[in-house]
């Protein structure tokens, strides 16, 4: 069962839905490179987090299916999200990262920080 949670957001850069209490964020941009988009993504992720944290420990999946390019600033946004979720004693999973993007995580050793799953289902299952 899912519901749309991105209603009312100006220029939503992600689709947000819920699966049994786990929030699924599907990034819409193919290229996450420019600072304005990255700032908007950060703000929108934080808004979702604040909203769901009111209802319990946040469980979060970020789906990268659409993302084919990203910069180091986008990594910074993910690190900030990860820290905020941890502060609220929640959990974060990343999934569906294309091989070229995954290489960025390996080069920066962020694959050791983030819990990354191959498929959306694996990510959701690991939080349920």
């Amino acid at each position: 069962m899912s519901e749309d949670a991105s209603e009312g957001v100006q220029n939503p850069r992600m689709d947000v839905s819920f699966f049994d209490g786990v929030v699924l964020v599907e990034l819409k941009d193919r290229k996450i490179l420019d600072e304005v988009s990255i700032m908007q993504i950060g703000e929108q992720l934080n808004a979702v987090l604040q909203k769901i944290a009111q209802e319990g420990l946040p469980r979060f999946v970020v789906d990268f299916t659409n993302v084919s390019h990203m910069s180091s600033s986008a990594l910074g946004v993910l690190i900030t999200l990860h820290k905020r979720i941890r502060e609220k004693r929640g959990q974060l999973r990343l999934c569906c990262i294309q091989p070229a993007i995954y290489e960025i995580f390996v080069i920066t050793r962020l694959n050791e920080i983030f819990q990354i799953r191959q498929s959306r289902q694996e990510a959701l299952d690991s939080l349920s």
């Binding site: 180091s72 920066t108 920080i113």
Partner: peptide, 21 residues
């Protein structure tokens, strides 16, 4: 070095590492 253990969770400082990679 952003890949040093103590810097892994810093949100910035990876640009040059990626350029070199």
């Amino acid at each position: 070095d952003p890949t040093a253990d103590e810097n892994l969770e810093k949100p910035t400082g990876r640009g040059i590492t990626l350029m070199r990679a």
